[in-house]
Structures are given as C-alpha cells and as structure tokens.
Nucleic acid binder design. Structure first.
Lengths: 186, 186
DNA sequence: CAACGGCTATCTGTCGTCAGGTAGATAAAA
DNA sequence: TTTTATCTACCTGACGACAGATAGCCGTTG
C-alpha cells in the first residue's frame, strides 16, 4: 500500500528529527530504517524540504487532535494542564527526544521556508489550545489568557530543552513542578 | 600573532553556531569567514569536537565573568534579573541568534561528548548565579532558590527558543514580561 | 496496456581530516 | 658571523565518506 510506506517513512523521519534534528536526517539512513532504497523516498517526497514540511504539518495535526479531544471530554483546567505537560515528558522518555517543533525551532535559520512556516503553526496551535484551557478559569480575560498561554508554551519548551540537554527527565519534572508552585501553570 | 587568529576563528565559529548550529558549522565556511584555509584551522583545533568544546568553554567563562561582575557591583535583585534577561534579548537582536548553549543543547544527541559536557556546564553556571541573586531576597531558603533558579533558566531559554523560531524579538520581550507578572522572575 | 512502487546506478557537491610542503622568524652552534 | 636546526603559522592537494537529487529500468497490479 502507498499510504503504508509513506507513513513508515514519515514515522521514521519524525523519530530521527526529534533525536538528531533536521540536519541529522539523511535519506540514506532513513531508507535503511524503513527498509527501502534512498531513491525511493523521492517517489513520495520530491525534496527534503517537502518531507520536513509534511512532517511538521502532520505533527501539528496529530497533537491538535489529541488536545482537542481533551476539551471534548470536558476535563478541568488542572487535568488538561497535567496531561499537556505529560506529553512533553513522554517525548523525553522516548530516548531523550525533543518535541519536533522545539528541535526544528532551534534549527530555524537553516530550514527551508516551507518547513519554517509549519513549525510556527505548531506553536500557534499550542498557544490557542492553552488559551482556551485558561479561558475555563477566566472567560472574560482574553488577552491575558493569550499572553499566559504563550508564556506557558515557551516555559514548557524551555524545560524540555534543558532536560534534553542533560539527558534527564527528572529535570523536566522538577522544573514543571516549580512552574506550578509559581502558578505559571494552573 | 597566534592568539589573534585563534581568537578570530573562535569568534567566527561562535557566531555561526549561534546562527546555524554545530551541524551548520563547516571548516571551509569558517575558514572563508576568517580569511585562511580550512586546513589551517586544524593547526589550532585538531578536531571539530575540540573546537566546539573550546567554544562552549569560552562562552561559559565569558558570561560567567559578566554575571559575576554584576554581583560585585552590588546591584539589587530586580536590576540583576533585568540585565540577565536583556543578554538573551541582545543575542536575538544580533541576527536572530540563539544562546550558544541553547543551540548546542538542542543538538545534544549528535554532539561529541566533550562538547556535551561543556554545554551542561554553562547551564549549571547560570543556575548557580541565579540562585545567588535569589538569595539576596531569601537567604535562608537555599533549596527553594535552586529550584527557582533552574525554572527561571529553563523559562528564559524557552522564551528565546520560541522568539528565535518566529524570528521576532518582541515575542521574547512579551514572554519575559509575562514571567515577571507571574512572579516567576523577580 | 498503463500506472504504481519501487529499484540500480550515477551525478555533483560538501564534509572532516590529514600528509606533506613552505616562507619566515628565532636560536643555537661553528 | 655565518651556518644549521628548529619552530610558527600557515598553505596545497587530496582522501574517503556521505549528502540530496535524478534518469531510467522493471516487475507487479489493475
């Protein structure tokens, strides 16, 4: 099946990018992971930039759905936030990987523009969701919620970056706990 | 002079790594920037890893001295913190560059071990300094200050990462302001 | 037959690295 | 004072590995 191989390419590529970054992603290694030849990847993705953009787009769509699902379930603010921060912890637990958007964000200056745009999209999606969660508490403070959402997103990305740097998930957990103690995160 | 060329190599390399990352640093491009041949860089730095480690070490030493100087001047907590966050803002203002340790931290999984170690050192140095600043307020709460220091460091790195991703310093400034409003940063 | 999903083979370019050479300065030896 | 030796600060040129990309072939499936 077409979708099958394409999916396997994207899945393997995502894991590599979250581990080694966009620059660390090579068609040859990727092909080995999937079990095909590197030239075959070009059948699905004409260029590396196209693959990168597709990766980021899919990542946003996936977590967009996951987060949306939480709201649909009618979870309260604290539970939403706890699950949110757990997603990033799980990523670290999977071989010290970084959020795809965090990794690509750092590499921003060497990314093709099509990839850059998708990475920004992920951040905006996160901020929008966070703002909606915060709105459960302060429905009438729209602007404040948006600022707070952005700060939370940045702080969580930072916590993941530092924990990734030290290859130690407990660093992430401790920092998140401190954010909560400071009421940055509800 | 020897020190002169070596310094110019390190300075150019630092700027490139903060822009494009360790993976984006090539001996040939670096040589062009400095005005020598790529093989000559090996005269000063046997391997790329050695150069990377020297870069990070120097970066830590430089900012360690800058921060130490603030304490010597007897500045108050708010002024120290304001100057601290301004350093990262200035880095962004210089062609959307990232803190060297933030960039290398993201690339952690593909760095030579010698470089990894130096990057961690930078973070520890920052946390120690922040904890000392916080101790001006709460001299008897050592452990709390250390946790708070780490959270501040992570949050600032995160703010810089997100602003870097969007190539917009005002995003950094806004997030830092929100941290302050939350009393995460004094 | 024709489209699909791969393949082989190859191109061009760049990477870090290294062996070996050289011009000039310094210094010790004759 | 001249010769010889060593060191500094580079350079030339090349190595093998690997990068993304492309042209064209071929068996399978509908």
């Amino acid at each position: 099946m077409t979708a099958d191989t394409k999916d396997r390419i994207m899945e393997a590529a995502r894991l590599t990018v979250q581990d080694l970054g966009y620059g660390g992603l090579s068609f040859r290694e990727l092909a080995k992971d999937v079990g095909i030849k590197s030239a075959s990847i070009h059948y699905y993705f004409a260029t590396k930039g196209e693959l990168g953009a597709a990766l980021a787009n899919r990542y946003t769509a996936h977590y967009g759905a996951v987060l949306e699902d939480m709201l649909t379930q009618g979870l309260d603010v604290e539970t939403c936030m706890a699950r949110y921060t757990e997603v990033f912890a799980d990523t670290l637990r999977a071989d010290n990987r970084l959020c795809l958007a965090g990794m690509l964000g750092a590499e921003r200056n060497q990314l093709p523009e099509e990839v850059q745009a998708e990475v920004v999209e992920y951040g905006i999606m996160n901020e929008r969701w966070l703002a909606r969660v915060l709105a459960m508490r302060n429905p009438d403070r729209h602007e404040e919620n948006e600022r707070q959402a952005r700060a939370i997103y940045a702080a969580v990305q930072g916590a993941q970056l530092i924990a990734h740097t030290r290859n130690d998930v407990s660093v992430y957990e401790e920092i998140i706990a401190t954010y909560r103690a400071n009421h940055l995160i509800p």
